[in-house]
């Protein structure tokens, strides 16, 4: 995973709450391999006027071209565990999502893909969504080490889980981190087989 320290780019203001993963990428687009790219399907039905709704058409406005940051309202990424929702955001070019709260699974998926789920107070999100510099398409700065967002003259602090912050700053790979614990895992497994003999499936022989 590529380390994330800071970024400077336009930020897209998405004034929606409860943006669920079915909106982030509708299920019908999830049958393709990742190599084909998912960015074109991001918020597809809210960008393309599905059912007459274009509330996410802001993503395609020229002033936000090249945006690597998305600002949204509460409960962003709620719903299903589909990591394709994060693939769609990442393939579109986003590396940071700013919102007051995130779906738990979505936030975890974001970090695994090098995206920063930056949690800010509701009132700060409202200020960012109305920030003149941000709305003009001027770059905002996301500083992960300092945990601040700078938009024009505005400075907003954000929260992120301490473990996730370390992973993102260092670009750590989960599987490599875990392999370094192989001795502890083996010791745990040996003990667990004795303490919970019933936990293994009783009948798992090939048919």
């Amino acid at each position: 995973m590529k380390p994330f320290t800071s970024l400077s780019s336009p930020a897209v203001p998405l004034s929606l709450a409860n943006v669920d993963t079915d909106q982030l990428i509708p299920a019908r687009f999830m049958k393709r391999p990742r190599s084909e790219g998912y960015g074109g399907f991001l918020l597809h039905d809210l960008r393309r006027g599905g059912a007459g709704d274009t509330s996410a058409a802001v993503l395609d406005e020229p002033r936000f071209a090249g945006a690597a940051c998305l600002v949204a309202r509460r409960n962003f990424g709620c719903g299903s565990s589909r990591e394709a929702a994060v693939y769609a955001l990442a393939d579109f070019g986003f590396r940071c999502i700013v919102a007051p709260s995130f779906g738990d699974i979505f936030a975890s998926n974001a970090v695994k893909n090098g995206l920063v789920p930056a949690r800010v107070a509701e009132e700060d999100v409202e200020r960012l969504l109305q920030n003149e510099s941000l709305l003009a398409g001027h770059p905002v700065v996301i500083d992960l080490a300092e945990q601040v967002i700078r938009a024009g003259n505005e400075v907003v602090a954000f929260d992120i889980d301490i473990g996730w912050k370390a992973r993102l700053l260092n670009g750590w790979d989960d599987i490599e981190l875990t392999r370094a614990k192989c001795r502890e895992i083996d010791a745990f497994r040996a003990r667990d087989l004795i303490e919970r003999p019933w936990a293994a499936p009783s009948n798992n022989r090939p048919d």
């Binding site: 299903s80 394709a84 699974i105 998926n109 989960d174 599987i175 875990t178 895992i185």
Partner: peptide, 16 residues
């Protein structure tokens, strides 16, 4: 609990 694809890969590789 539910997990995403990267975590599925992690569990496949490590059972943790």
């Amino acid at each position: 609990f539910g997990i995403g694809a990267s975590e599925v890969a992690h569990v496949l590789a490590t059972q943790t």
